[in-house]
Design a protein around this nucleic acid. Sequence first.
DNA 1: CTAACATATGAACAGTTGTTCATATGAATG
DNA 2: CATTCATATGAACAACTGTTCATATGTTAG
Lengths: 118, 118
Amino acid sequence: MEHNHDAILEKVRQDLPTDELLSDLSDLFKIFGDTTRCKILYALFESEMCVCAIAELLGMTQSAISHQLRILKDADLVGKRRDGKTIYYFLSDDHVRTIIAQGFEHLIEDYLEKEQET
Amino acid sequence: MEHNHDAILEKVRQDLPTDELLSDLSDLFKIFGDTTRCKILYALFESEMCVCAIAELLGMTQSAISHQLRILKDADLVGKRRDGKTIYYFLSDDHVRTIIAQGFEHLIEDYLEKEQET
DNA sequence: CTAACATATGAACAGTTGTTCATATGAATG
DNA sequence: CATTCATATGAACAACTGTTCATATGTTAG
């Protein structure tokens, strides 16, 4: 850590968001960073679903799904509505779609690049 | 898990991507799901930077940064170029910007909604 | 070739995360 | 109002993650 880079540092420091905001941001992405949760969100692209349907779809415990749905709900990525005994979960806004779509786009470009290399 | 939802299940099953793709997708988001890595990426929005500059910027060990840069490199989110002893890291494509921008947009809308509630 | 600098890497450790199991809540039905 | 179904929750445990410390690699200057 000897050579000088004060110029760049100062420029970057000005535009870097606050620690709090960056922490919130990574917390948001943390939520997408789990296969189970990605599957749930993707499933909800189609239509709202009840907990047991999701559990059946993913071949997982009702408890496991319920825990994950709580996390998604806390982050305002999904909403829920009750109909009798059943509780239906649904996507709460379209950012989820856009974020996941962007992720896919990056993946696909990566795949294409790696194909070209051969 | 008693009531019937075969109709929805079948519909959703058709459009659900493969486990492998969804796993790659969540692996990608996992990378954004860490404050240090988000900060690094954000810093690289401005300009390429060497490892020690990033370390100084974030007030972290050179080693810690180096470990994280490896993860970002492995995921093709950043590239590097050597100039003498120094190695400069830079964003490898614009998806990073878009993904992070979308994340921010979701956060901001959340903040606005919570303000309205009061 | 050696010293100094910039970065990379591996092992170790603490902290976090996702699942399971057991159990609790809450609504409808007879 | 007791039972059944749908979901939620808490504790516990294994697996994973990020940082630190020590050390290795690789480059340049003298």
